[in-house]
């Protein structure tokens, strides 16, 4: 029982990796202002790049709750940086389910880790929630806020109620692919160096 409780070291690990993931997310997010289609391409970019720290994080996860806490932290950070709270339930739910899946594999099984990473990546879609839920209002406020009509049209062509399902699936698929990429990188650099 005592072994299953989270210790300070685990909390610090969570903190470090959350910071790393956020930096990756932020770097990719900056690209989105160049063209709206890149906003839609987050579902490809972030799982692929973010998978490298995530897969290293998975090797450190041995107890239930670490992935859930990470998702709560991401939700808090997303709120603070102005992404809104609409996505928070999705982020935390994705983290919790990912945690359950990884637990099923005993945090060791690679198959379960891949699935779990796929589910975890669904949190990226939470960033689209304000766009979808308040589509009309959001469009108007973007136009009033000085965005060009071109940007708006392209943004809503790429992200709407119809495409969100595809985006969710893409998130999952690239999360799974990213898991393999991340695993390869982790094996190449960290396992050979004897860190993991």
């Amino acid at each position: 029982m005592n072994d299953n409780k989270l210790k300070v070291k685990d909390f610090i690990t969570i903190g470090i990796f959350t910071a790393l993931i956020f930096v990756v997310e932020f770097a990719c997010g900056m690209l989105g202002f160049i063209h709206p289609y890149i906003v839609a391409a987050y579902v490809v970019l972030i799982p692929l790049v973010g998978s490298i720290p995530m897969m290293l994080f998975y090797t450190k996860v041995t107890k239930f709750g670490m992935i859930t806490i990470m998702s709560i932290l991401i939700a808090i950070i997303m709120f603070v940086t102005g992404m809104g709270w609409l996505g928070a339930p999705l982020i935390i739910a994705a983290g919790f389910i990912a945690d359950l899946i990884a637990k099923k594999g005993g945090y060791k099984s690679f198959k379960m880790t891949v699935l779990s990473h796929g589910v975890f990546c669904l949190w990226i879609c939470a960033n689209y929630f304000p766009v979808i839920v308040t589509a009309e209002d959001y469009r108007k406020s973007l136009l009033d806020g000085g965005y060009s009509a071109e940007y708006c049209d392209a943004l809503f062509r790429a992200i709407n109620v119809k495409t969100i399902a595809i985006l969710l699936i893409l998130c999952f698929v690239f999360g799974v692919i990213g898991a393999f990429v991340g695993k390869a990188v982790v094996r190449k650099h960290f396992e050979k160096a004897g860190i993991v």
Partner: peptide
């Protein structure tokens, strides 16, 4: 809860380090 406050403190402290 300790889990959230410790992790958040680490995140806060870590941005300048990163």
């Amino acid at each position: 809860p300790d889990g959230i406050s410790v992790s958040l403190a680490v995140v806060m402290r870590f941005f300048p380090t990163i």
